[in-house]
Design a protein around this nucleic acid. Structure first.
Length: 476
RNA sequence: GUCCCCAUCGUCUAGCCCGGCCUAGGACAUCGCCCUUUCAAGGCGGUAACGCGGGUUCGAAUCCCGCUGGGGACGCCA
């Protein structure tokens, strides 16, 4: 029997959950689900000066929004300092680690000189041989790295990667203030939490041989590694703020569906034949490292937008109503106490569904259905609300006022009889009416629009359009 | 500087491991056409890629070497 798969996502709370982190979390989650394993959330907050509780909350919020639920945690490394110290002590006692009396300033200066001389900026290991304490200095603790031989990282995505031990410098595992550093905590926790597969960004590949040496120093079995390719911006540089939104929750704000983001992210570096759109169950079923690519991928917001529109089109109007509500409030299209009738809203949403790429789009398009008054787009007004259309609008208004049933079907009949009577194209009537109803020249089918707006409001808007044309005449 | 990784359309990718089925497939974007009351959606079609140079082989996008290009790491950050 193989052991149960246990993976973790281990962000440091020094910022919001960003696109790269989200994809790492997603691949961990997918791998866990695929193997019926355990997904652990661990907060790596050992750098107390940069970690905040707000960021922890933000990361959790992002994970929840994406639907990446974890089975254990969230654990915080700051709660576990005692454990790390014990492990470090053990290494010290066994002679596998030593005290380092070099100050940060000294080290910094030496690094600078080494770089300037074109030498490796790594630590030279000088304190390794000091046996007596240096008075007045509280030391840090360093791990003794092997000076010879090679370390091989067996990576599920990249295969075997060999590093020369000579280039691994003695890394600090305990700072002079006694707090543990990343390389120690990561190994201790992964051992302690029985992590079987470490799935993380490519940028950690170079840390891996050091961590393997730490596993060796402790005498623990080495887990499997899978290093994911990075996500880059359009200029092929590491994705950062200047490439636009990188925070996951910013995509919520912009009206993206979490399913769309997940779908987009998973296809960045992973593929399953020619399939582009996946249900969550399909992702779990098909996910495998065999289909994960090795090359870094450029984040392409346009494809994400397309996916989002696909997810919107395939959502039920009822679900869309729920999703769009917060945006109606945020965009000030409705007030807190005045939520429109849900059935009516669903009908309105249905007409807009294939036209909206985001929930923000949807909310804004809903505006002309919901608002009491509309504003004309100047170009559209000038083009369609004029002397030419005036008589038709007046005639239409009368017909609509008296039609028995104010339905798209009946309205269509009225339009057709009017256009036939005058020998005009449908567009000659539909476009002016569209402007009268929505303020602009684009909308869903005009008959549906009228039906949804309703008789009373439609007549009022028609009236307003007529008056607008007449008053502009008077100005001349 | 040293070390590590990577390399197919503008972008995400299939194909590469196990060479011939590849006149290199799909998707986004883009362009054109159709549908049409507008805008979308949808349908159809087009433009567009194996970084370069050497090998190996009857045959290379696929295997090997070099180069170039890109990314990453070298912290008392994670």
């Amino acid at each position: 029997m193989t052991e149960k798969v246990r993976v973790r996502f281990a962000p440091s709370p020094t910022g919001f959950l960003h696109i790269g982190g989200a994809r790492t979390a997603l691949f961990n989650w997918l791998f866990a689900k695929h193997n019926n394993g355990i997904f652990i959330l661990r907060i790596e907050d050992t750098d107390r000066s940069r970690s905040t509780d707000e960021y922890i909350e933000a990361i959790i919020e992002g994970m929840k929004w994406l639907g990446l639920d974890w089975d254990e945690g969230p654990f915080r490394q700051t709660d576990r300092f005692e454990i790390y110290r014990n492990y470090a002590d053990r290494l010290l006692k066994e002679g596998r680690a030593y005290y380092c009396y070099c100050s940060s300033e000294e080290l910094e200066a030496r690094r600078k000189i080494a770089t300037a001389l074109g030498r490796s900026p790594g630590y030279d290991g000088r304190c390794r041989y000091i046996k007596e304490p240096v008075p007045g200095i509280t030391p840090a603790v360093r791990l003794k790295m092997p000076r010879e031989g090679k370390t091989v990282v067996e990576d599920l995505i990249r295969g075997n990667i060999t590093f020369d031990n000579a280039q691994l410098d003695d890394l600090i595992i305990l700072r002079s203030d006694g707090t543990p550093t990343y390389n120690l905590t990561v190994v201790v926790d992964d051992v302690d939490m029985k992590i079987t597969h470490i799935i993380r960004g490519d940028d950690h590949l170079n840390n891996t041989p050091k961590q393997i040496q730490l596993y060796n120093a402790f005498g623990y079995a080495i887990p499997k590694f899978a290093h994911l390719p990075m996500i880059l911006g359009s200029d092929k540089a590491r994705l950062s703020k200047r490439h636009g939104a990188t925070s996951v929750m910013a995509y919520y704000e912009m009206g993206y569906l979490p399913e769309a983001l997940v779908n987009y992210l998973v296809r960045l570096g992973w593929s399953y034949g020619d399939q582009e759109v996946f249900k969550r169950e399909e992702l779990i079923k098909y996910f495998s490292f065999e289909n994960v690519g090795k090359a870094a991928a450029v984040f392409n917001p346009e494809k994400l937008l397309w996916l989002n529109s696909q997810y919107i089109i395939n959502s039920s109007p009822e679900k869309l109503v729920e999703l769009v509500k917060p945006f109606l409030l945020k965009e000030k299209i409705i007030d807190e106490g005045r939520i429109p009738d849900e059935v009516w809203l669903s009908k309105a949403v249905l007409t807009l569904r294939e036209r909206a790429k985001t929930l923000v789009d949807l909310a804004n398009s809903l505006r002309y259905y919901i608002a009491d008054n509309i504003e004309y787009n100047e170009k559209a007004r000038a083009k369609f609300l004029n002397e030419k259309s005036l008589p038709y609008l007046i005639e239409l208004k009368d017909s609509l006022a008296s039609v028995a049933e104010f339905s798209a079907n009946e309205i269509e009949k009225i339009f057709h009889s009017l256009t036939e009577r005058h020998g005009i194209k449908l567009g000659n009537l539909a476009q002016p009416v569209r402007v009268a109803m929505t303020g602009g020249a684009e909308s869903p089918g005009i008959f549906e629009v009228l039906e949804i707006i309703g008789r009373e409001k439609s007549l009022m808007r028609l009236d307003m359009a007529i008056k607008t044309i007449q008053s502009s005449r008077e100005e001349l």
